[in-house]
Structures are given as C-alpha cells and as structure tokens.
C-alpha cells in the first residue's frame, strides 16, 4: 500500500501539467525544493559539527564590536541609547534580524543601567520589542530598571515617524543611535540628524539602495548579509555560528556555478545558462 502510494506520488510529481488543466501540479517548483533541501542538509551538517564543539571562525564585524563601545559611551555621558528596528513590520525578515540584535543591545544597556529608547512604527513590532527588552533586563539581572514607556508606538506613516524620531534626537540628544532593519527614503534624514547631534551611529540594512547613505553618515555600517549574521556573532551560540558557515559553503557552491557559467558563456556554450534560465524561470 505504502509502495503504491509512493509510486503514485512520484508519478504525479513527474507528470507534466497539461494545457487547460486548471488543477495545480502535485509538486510545484521542484528545483526550488531540491535547492532548499540541499541547503537544509548543509545547514544541519554544520550545526552538528558546531554542536560537537568545533566552532567555526567568523571574521570580526567592526559594526557589532562598536555596539558595546557605543553603549559604554552613552553610559559615561549619562545619555540614552536610541534603537530603531527599521520601517518594516514583523513580517519583514530584516525587522526580525533587528529584533535579534536588539536582544543583545538591550541586555548590554540594562547591565550598564543606560536607558534604551525605541520608537516603533508598527504596533506589533512595539509589542515584540517590549518583550525582547523586558527579557533582556531579566537576563541582565535588572528587571527593576525596565521601563515600558521607553518602547512606544508612534505612527504607521513614514514621515510622521521620521519627524518624531528626529525630534527625539534633537531633544534628548542620545549618545548612540543604532539603526537596524529595513530603511527607505528616510535613511539619510535619520542618519544626518543623528550625525548633527554628535551621536555615535551604527547602522545595518539589507536595502542596497540605502546602504550608501548609511555608509556615509554613520560611524559603522553592517552591509547586507552582515545584518543577518549579527545575531549569530553576538550570541556566540554554536548552532547559530554553524549556520553562518553553512551559508558560506552554499555561497561557494553558487560561486562555482557562476564561474562555470561565465566560462561556458564566453566560449559560446549557452546550454548551461539556458538550463538555469529554465530552472529559475519555471521554478
């Protein structure tokens, strides 16, 4: 019975979709599925290696090293730290990465007894951030210093949020501004205002169009994927560090494909590129 079921499943998976057939195929996007399974296999190989105690080397990220320095500076000056998780809601993976970094920043700020201010553009992000910061205070052994009023909702409107945040920078003069997550047209307005107030600024985004603005206006910048690697780097957790290594291995494999493709295209052998075009086009 099971064998018949498996056979039927494989048969249906391999069956082409006929024209006029409105039913979706049994297996959609087979190449994507194979790639994803391959990635998961590589990830778990490196997770197991890391769990056995063989921690992979991850290069130093200056932007993350500077976070402690920035919080220390704020403590010395007796000023707060401003943290923004970007203009994405919690359904944006960059916001989740920003919340992961927030966990570390909030713990450090709690240890140094430095106020952490976080205006939020979305109410779900606000509620999640409140939980993250509360938990960080608990882990730092300072639950009494947690102030929920420092994490608050402002507005869903982009420039209303920016106007408020700029106002906070001008009035409260935070000693450190940390911008992590998804940013759009407002990135330079925030970073330049922060620069004008003399704050040490650390940014991190995967929005390539906004990266130049942050690179110019901030002291440190996490570029693209570094935002996603930050959580592993900060936690020094074996499993998370293993995942970074797995990511590098996948990148090397893809780099190999690109190199082979470039050489074959140069010598006018287009079948290889056509195959990938088909795979990517048809999913």
């Amino acid at each position: 019975m099971i064998k018949r079921g498996v056979f039927l499943f494989l048969f249906l998976s391999a069956s082409p979709v006929f024209a006029g057939d409105e039913k979706p195929p049994m297996l959609a996007h087979p190449y994507v599925l194979v790639t994803m399974l391959l990635m998961i296999a590589i990830l778990y190989t490196y997770l197991l290696t890391a769990k056995k105690g063989k921690l992979p080397f991850i290069r130093t990220l200056p932007g993350l090293k500077a976070i402690d320095e920035a919080i220390g500076r704020a403590t010395e000056l007796g000023k707060p730290v401003l943290y923004l998780s970007g203009l994405g809601d919690v359904d944006n993976i960059q916001t989740l990465a920003a919340l992961s970094i927030l966990s570390h920043v909030a713990k450090k700020a709690a240890e140094y007894d430095t106020p952490l201010i976080m205006p939020s553009m979305y109410s779900v992000t606000m509620v999640t951030a409140q939980e993250v910061i509360k938990e960080a205070h608990l882990r730092a052994g300072r639950p009494d210093t947690y102030n929920p009023d420092n994490v608050y909702y402002v507005s869903d409107e982009q420039f209303a949020f920016v106007a408020h945040t700029n106002g906070v920078m001008e009035r409260m003069r935070p000693a450190a501004n940390i911008y992590m997550g998804a940013y759009f047209g407002e990135s330079l307005i925030l970073a330049e205002t922060g620069h004008a107030t003399g704050a040490i600024q650390i940014a991190g985004t995967a929005e390539t169009s906004q990266l130049p603005f942050f690179v110019v206006a901030c002291d440190y910048c996490l570029i693209g994927e570094e935002l996603y690697a930050a959580s592993a780097y900060l936690s020094q957790d074996a499993k998370q560090m293993g995942s970074i290594k797995a990511q590098d291995v996948v990148r090397l494999i893809v780099l190999g494909f690109i190199l082979v493709g470039s050489i074959l295209e140069t010598v006018n052998l287009p079948h290889y590129a056509d195959f990938f075009q088909k795979v990517l086009g048809g999913g």
């Binding site: 966990s103 939980e131 935002l227």
Partner: peptide
C-alpha cells in the same frame, strides 16, 4: 542571509527575536 535566517527562525535555532538572547 534571508534564506538561512528564515530556516533558523522556522526551526527554532534563532529565538532571540522572542527575547531569548539566542
């Protein structure tokens, strides 16, 4: 980064966004 972050979140390897500190 996005793909691996998604897998880590889905499988519970990264829980710091819940406040777990990783």
């Amino acid at each position: 980064g996005m793909v691996f972050m998604s897998i880590k979140i889905l499988t519970g390897i990264d829980r710091s966004y819940f406040g777990g500190g990783g």
